[in-house]
Design a protein around this nucleic acid. Structure first.
Length: 175
DNA sequence: CCCTGATTCGC
DNA sequence: GCGAATCAGG
């Protein structure tokens, strides 16, 4: 395979091969790998320049959404600040934090990757802790995963006559 | 996260 | 003309 040319320009042969492979339906990345020395972007760029674009592509919404012009980098850019994302956390202390033999619960120091990180209690209280139960995969245990993942189920009036303390905790946790 | 092509634009 | 960066989707 004596293809190890120099800086790999678009020679007549390479262009021919490109046309062939593209016509055969190979993806740009596949073609790039075949040709060697070029990235898929290079292939796509060339394909467009050759006017071959618009093939039976597996991913084409058949729309032409006129993509927003790419800003790219221009001059002294402005350091964009990003709004801190406030995570709306609702604490429903149905379950008590798992405790160790010494009576201590899972805190930020003892929290493990495989432990449920569902916050329990008033974050401003010294007794505040995390669930600490085993979490398989997700950040929460099975029980809290369900609680934290309620899309927007119909609000039952389960809070009828909710204790003032609970409301207070909910409010604090939401901050 | 993998992939796809499409587009813009500095070089 | 070239192709990296980026985007918009599957």
């Amino acid at each position: 395979m004596g293809q190890g040319g120099l800086i790999m320009g678009w020679t007549d042969e390479r262009v021919t091969l490109l046309r062939k492979l593209w016509a055969e339906g190979l993806s740009a990345s596949q073609i790039a790998k075949q040709l060697g020395g070029v990235t898929r972007n290079a292939v796509i760029g060339k394909v467009h320049r050759l006017g071959l674009a618009g093939r039976a592509t597996p991913s084409r919404p058949a729309k032409r959404p006129v993509r927003t012009a790419r800003p790219r980098v221009m001059g002294p850019s402005v350091p964009r600040l990003r709004m801190p994302s406030t995570m709306p956390t609702v604490v429903i202390p149905d379950l008590e934090p798992l405790k160790f033999e010494d009576g201590k619960a899972a805190n930020v120091l003892t929290l493990n990757e495989s432990m449920c990180k569902f916050p329990i209690g008033d974050p401003t209280d010294p007794d505040f802790a995390f669930c600490g139960r085993g979490s398989s995969g997700g950040p929460y245990c099975s029980d809290h995963a369900r609680l934290a993942y309620q899309p927007s189920q119909a609000r039952k009036r389960r809070t009828a006559g909710a204790p003032d303390e609970l409301r207070r905790m909910l409010r604090l946790a939401a901050m």
